[in-house]
Nucleic acid binder design. Structure first.
Length: 536
RNA sequence: GGUGGCGUGCCCGAGUGGACUAAGGGAGCGGAUUGCAAAUCCGCGAUUCAUGGGUUCGAAUCCCAUCGCCACCUCCA
């Protein structure tokens, strides 16, 4: 079945045909780095990560670009009256704006790494592409799509007939609905800034043909996507709230510069709500990912109401996000998260059990054919450890794996699972149906293990499971034994044995108590009975 | 006010004209297993898809109206 995607341009499912197969150029709007990432970022980037993984799994050679906005994104009201978000945060913290951007860029990648979101191939910074943006504005002026007023350059929306086509609105409608006082420099209220004159005291500023200033927010995305992908993108992704005006402006800039279609497929992901309510800074109910992953006490909103009772590991959050569709809104609540956690751990245990059973059946710790990443020992996630893309399994390799199953019944079952999974993902990346499929798979695999299926069956099943769950869905749970947690658990386990041994000593069951001491000693753990108790 | 979208069991959430006697997860109940638990396994659970009309041989799926919710029109993933 061919891959179909819902294209916002045209608002319907379309077969996905890249411009230059097998190459696919994907651009997704990245974060403005003026604060820590929250649940909204998680939904957006986990969704697109699943999309990227599926494209690669399907055999496409994907180049994935995601910008880091570190300049020019204005706060509230008309963009011309607002303030640069990063500069505002820098003033609050007493830092240089670039330091704020740097710090939150790191924070963003840290959170995304935790969620197993694969890093983009290129993460261009807006501030690193000032010359390119100036050049673009210059070209647009030259072609009559823009005009300069007092050191600022504005795009003239009346010069681009397609303006409004993506979001389905007309320039006339917008004029009628304008709520904000219009910047008198603009010829039309819908015109937007390509370059802004920097007022005295504005820190982030660059020289330009129009004097010192800084780029308008929309410009970076057109410029950087076209620089790294080409005139026409295959896929542009982003949040639905940016459909207008941001993406509309990108199209206008991109197409008026090159005369080529800017992007073939526009994918928009939906928003998250929290207990049925919009999540937002102004509502005081934002949930930041770092808090959600690590908190030791309930997270509360501004009024002290509990939003989330406890912490959840990143894989559980990812799992929850993947059980819904990227185009549908997703409601977070404590209850929903707990349910997702229970389900996710059930899947985790089944996946690990299959892995162990396959290894056992093959009678060796290291097993050929099970090269998939072991969920027992997740590969380290960190700045320098993105998945080597060349090693990622693809559909063809998986077919061979399925065919390698020993018995006809299992081979048929695996082929069926594989097909259901693919059909789901090919239908506009229906991760919810894909997750349902792997749950069914896990249940069947449990039966095979109990019925003593031959090694060939279990190995084939394990390889397929690792590929679907670990590589495509990207679910990598924390190892329950690791680092400080492992140390604490080890000590707790020894304490249990010590307590039982002391019970035995009190009951004068010295045979048993000595056995405990001897056997621990063989593990290098020496027990010492002192007046205040037993130590080791 | 304008534009776009959504409303599926106790909860989350797939399904968008006939294979729906509506997926999957959570919670619940019954059973198997168990010294007791946990885990696991099997089974049950929406005659119904916000409400009311309509189109159709046939609708959760299409159309209209009403109610509720969300997004965008001003920054937000």
């Amino acid at each position: 079945m061919a891959l179909k995607v819902f294209n916002t341009l045209g608002r319907k499912l379309e077969e996905f045909v890249p411009l230059n197969p097998p190459n696919v150029g994907v651009y997704v709007c990245g974060p403005t780095v003026y604060g820590h990432s929250h649940l909204g970022h998680a939904k957006s980037y986990v969704s697109f990560d699943a999309i990227l993984r599926w494209l690669r799994y399907s055999g496409y050679n994907v180049r994935y670009i995601q910008n880091i906005t570190d300049v020019g994104h204005m706060t509230e009201n008309d963009e011309d009256a607002g303030e640069d978000k990063i500069i505002a945060e820098a003033r609050r913290r007493g830092l240089h704006p670039a330091a704020v951007a740097e710090s939150f860029t790191r924070s963003y990648f840290e959170d995304m790494d935790a969620l197993s979101v694969l890093r983009p191939d290129i993460s261009p910074r807006a501030s690193g592409h000032i010359p390119e943006q100036i050049e673009c504005a210059r070209k647009l002026l030259e072609k009559g799509h823009a005009y300069e007023v007092n050191g600022s350059v504005y795009f003239d929306v009346s010069s681009f007939w397609k303006y409004g086509r993506l979001s389905g609105r007309s320039v006339e409608d917008m004029e009628a609905g304008a709520r904000v006082e219009v910047n008198p420099e603009k010829r039309h209220p819908a015109d937007f800034a390509l370059w802004k004159r920097a007022e005295p005291g504005h820190i982030m500023r660059w020289p330009s043909p129009w004097g010192e200033g800084f780029p308008g927010w929309h410009l970076e995305c057109s410029v950087m996507s076209q620089k790294y992908i080409g005139d026409t993108l295959d896929i542009h992704g982003g949040g639905i709230e940016n459909q207008f005006p941001h993406h509309e402006c990108e199209i206008a800039q991109g197409e008026c510069t090159t005369g080529q279609p800017f992007c073939r497929y526009w994918l928009h992901n939906n928003m998250v709500t929290l207990n049925g309510q919009k999540m937002g800074k102004s509502l005081g109910n934002s949930v930041f990912l770092k808090d959600l992953f690590h908190t030791t006490e309930p997270l509360r909103d501004r009024d002290g109401n509990v939003l989330v009772e406890k912490s959840f590991e990143p894989a559980v959050i990812r799992h929850f996000i993947l059980t819904s569709h990227y185009r549908a809104p997703l409601d977070f609540s404590n209850e929903a998260l707990k349910a997702a956690e229970a389900g996710s751990y059930k899947l985790r245990d089944a996946v690990r059990e299959l892995s162990r059973a396959a290894r056992r059946a093959a009678q060796g710790p290291k097993v050929q054919g099970s090269q998939g990443p072991s969920t027992d020992a997740p590969r380290p996630l960190g700045p320098s450890a993105p998945r080597p893309l060349a090693a990622a399994p693809n559909a063809t390799a998986l077919e061979q794996c399925v065919a390698s199953a020993t018995s006809d019944a299992v081979r048929t079952a695996l082929a069926d699972i594989s097909r259901r999974f693919s059909d789901a993902m090919n239908e506009d990346f229906n991760t919810a149906a894909a997750v349902a499929t792997v749950f069914d798979f896990a249940r069947q695999a449990g039966a095979w293990i109990r019925d003593g299926a031959p090694a060939g069956d279990l190995l084939a099943a394990d390889t397929l499971m690792q590929a679907l769950v670990g590589d495509v869905l990207g679910l990598r749970w924390q190892d329950t034994l690791g680092g400080a947690a492992a140390e604490a658990e080890r000590n707790a386990l020894i304490q249990i044995l010590v307590d039982l041994r002391n019970d035995a000593r009190k009951a004068k069951n010295f045979a048993l108590s000595d056995q405990v001491r001897t056997r621990l000693a063989t593990l290098g753990i020496e027990l010492k009975d002192g007046p205040t108790g037993t130590t080791w």
